[in-house]
Design a protein around this nucleic acid. Structure first.
Lengths: 338, 338
DNA sequence: CTGTTAGCGCCTTCAA
DNA sequence: TTGAAGGCGCTAACAG
């Protein structure tokens, strides 16, 4: 690391005390307007950059928040990050980003990185493997505020930003019913993720509302590993009484399913209609284009960051069981309507 | 920020000196095996976490590298980051990630964030707007090593990780020629990006090798704003002598182009064959699937990080004009071959 | 092998 | 309005 200009250097050059220089640089008002100018000019001239490590050490503040996401492959989480980072930056906060490759161990490791960096608050969406939340509880013990989004831990008493998965799923399935489908399968997510459960419940509610019998045989929870989709679709399509529609937990799953259906030369949507969830970039482009539920991705990140900053600044109580639910939108495309 | 356990606390509890505790914690070998155990146990018991700000302050090392990417929307850059982060983590380095929304001002701001965080090295791919590189030169002046990847600044004398764009483009175009195409258009990138120029050169070389005349009329550089693709495609297709194939600078561009061609009810690949570059997630899924050049995405990140760590550790000279060129692969799909 | 000491660069009393 | 001094938590000599 090369030499860095310090407050001492500025003080020496100007032949004044370090404390005066420091006052100017911290925005302390009790400084002569003249000396302030002098210091500021000199700081600029020397290209002074505050040593944040020294500042953090003495102020016990890191001015940094963390974001931990389960993966980086779909565009969903990166877009959420953009939203969160924008808000954080406006408030003068740095952001540390970590992704977990959908791996629990990595998640725990990332939490420790956050701890080591003394972040003032954390925005999290957990991996699909995460069933144990002890690593999160350390943050609560240390009173570092946390905000969940998307994949939340419902048992934990912290603010969450979610979309109305129940309602989205409900409308997705109701749409399938409205176009005349009678036997709707569901490729569900792992039930440790609350989004899986909420979407499943929306699915069930829509069936019930329209007096369609629920058949456990065609409700398949899986671990979101896309290579499994083919197996489950083959199973569904080989049933004596196969489904005429599919509601998939998310778009990648739906897209995988579409490939299998196409390989079998079944007609979409006549033989099998498909709805996904998320409105991924790809969904509008594939053939047939995918009917799906879109989420306000960037807004999710913004909302989470706003919430977190309020918690950090004690503008809202850490214990307030705050859940921000954003709305979704049904986007109808050719996988359900020709 | 809540109370943090310090070396002092451990020392007090064990009634030994702080320096001994510190020795244990920094891996200094000159410590009695017995006291070492004692300290380690107590550290664990108290859940001690080293204050990295204090450590960084005194060691003048941040143990952190930075990665700046132009955008976060396509999966390319996030995947590169995964690769880089893996290598960095193995070497005990933290990673700070910043993305620029393809915006020059944001890029400059992000460079300052990196500076403020005293990163020991930086991995960068610049935005499509970046034509001025002064913000990079500050790093050279401070002797903070930089490694470029993908979108590099060729004038700067720093190591770079690229794929063989020239060769990839060459093979893409040669493939079009081999399937019988005679008039191949090119939607090129902005010429401030070297990848644009290298891919253009590969295109030109392939034409020349096969004695196909170069027609400037059907070589269109554009600013990578996808909404423009429609305009350019309409132009190309309305020419009195329209092209029978297209080589697009990247997959998103090619995919946009496919949409336009399909809307016009032209046959792909008979009337118009298309090749992209990158092998994005979507490319295999759209209809027709897109022939493209795939890049070893994660490997790019890994290579960049390895290079950077070597520079940081002075294992290679900062001035060595090092360019790592990774190879690409032609992936033939239905947009060129039925 | 262990303890003492002196800072790293900054902020913040306290006194002038 | 300014200066001097102490300390944040840690590391790294220097003694012993």
């Amino acid at each position: 690391m090369s030499y860095q200009v310090t407050i001492k250097d500025i003080a020496k050059k100007l032949n004044i005390s370090k404390s005066t220089v420091s006052r100017v640089l911290t925005g302390n008002p009790h400084v002569n307007e003249n000396t302030r100018r002098l210091v500021l000019d000199m700081a600029k001239e020397l290209d002074y950059q505050k040593n944040i490590f020294a500042r953090n050490l003495v102020t016990h503040k890191s001015n940094t928040i963390g974001i931990i996401v389960p993966e980086f492959v779909t565009s969903f989480f990166p877009k959420v990050i953009i939203g969160a980072q924008t808000i954080a930056a406006k408030a003068g906060y740095n952001t540390i980003i970590a992704q977990c490759n959908e791996n629990y161990e990595t998640e725990v490791a990332n939490f420790n990185v956050m701890l080591a960096n003394q972040i003032e608050g954390l925005i999290v969406s957990v991996t699909k493997e995460t069933r144990n939340f002890d690593h999160l509880k350390i943050f609560q013990r240390k009173e570092i505020p946390i905000v969940f989004f998307n994949r939340v831990c419902e048992d934990m008493d912290v603010p969450k930003v979610v979309v109305d998965d129940y309602d989205g799923a409900f409308r997705a399935v109701e749409h399938l019913i409205e176009i005349g489908k009678k036997r709707i399968a569901h490729l569900a997510g792992p039930d440790n993720l609350s989004i899986s459960r909420r979407r499943l419940n929306g699915y069930l509610a829509a069936l019930r509302k329209h007096n369609i019998p629920v058949d456990e045989e065609i409700i398949i929870p899986y671990d979101l590993r896309l290579d499994k989709v083919k197996i489950y679709m083959n199973y569904l399509l080989s049933l004596p009484n196969p489904p005429d529609a599919l509601f998939a937990i998310n778009d990648p799953t739906a897209i995988e399913a579409l490939q299998v259906i196409k390989e079998k030369n079944l007609r979409i949507p006549e033989d099998m209609a498909v709805v996904g969830f998320s409105n991924d970039y790809t969904s509008a482009l594939i053939d047939p284009s995918l009917t799906t539920i879109s989420q306000p991705v960037q807004k999710i990140g913004e909302t989470a960051a706003e919430l977190l900053l309020q918690l950090i600044n004690n503008e809202i109580s850490k214990n307030s069981l705050l859940i921000k639910t954003l709305t979704t939108e049904l986007i109808i495309r050719h996988s359900t309507v020709r």
